[in-house]
């Protein structure tokens, strides 16, 4: 079976590194993007199995990028987790309104993130 791909869109190198470390021990293939525009382009090109989208991104915000991906029929069905700034800020509601499959408040526990990834991409 083909390795499943996770697209991580995040502008902070250290946070990308954490996910990179987390997924290095798994069979998931990780691709990364550092801003909203690049994220949308990579998603449309690579059609990943799961997208992790930070809410605040350069060039194109995470919410706008989510809306664009949801508007594109090729990417409309891909599970998409928005990493919100703060659960109580209202970002979570806006993320769900934009079309996110789930949201995760920052700072998140890596264990919680892995649990969420496994939820959307269960082992066979």
């Amino acid at each position: 079976m083909k390795d499943r791909t996770v697209l991580h869109i995040e502008d902070n190198e250290y946070n990308r590194k954490i996910v990179r470390q987390l997924l290095s021990r798994t069979s998931f293939k990780l691709i990364e993007a550092a801003d909203g525009e690049e994220g949308v382009a990579v998603a449309q090109r690579e059609l990943p199995d799961l997208i992790l989208m930070d809410v605040q991104l350069p060039k194109l915000s995470g919410l706008d990028a989510t809306r664009q991906l949801r508007a594109d029929p090729r990417t409309a069905k891909i599970p998409l987790v928005v990493v919100t700034s703060f659960a109580l800020s209202g970002d979570d509601r806006r993320a769900m309104d934009a079309g996110a499959s789930a949201y995760l408040a920052k700072p998140y526990s890596p264990r919680d993130l892995m649990a969420l990834i496994h939820k959307f991409l269960p082992d066979n």
């Binding site: 902070n12 946070n15 954490i18 700034s85 703060f86 700072p107 998140y108 526990s109 890596p110």
Partner: peptide, 15 residues
Amino acid sequence: MSHELRTPLNAILGF
């Protein structure tokens, strides 16, 4: 600021 503060904190706690 909320997001800017949380981003490094996320890295600290995550690592």
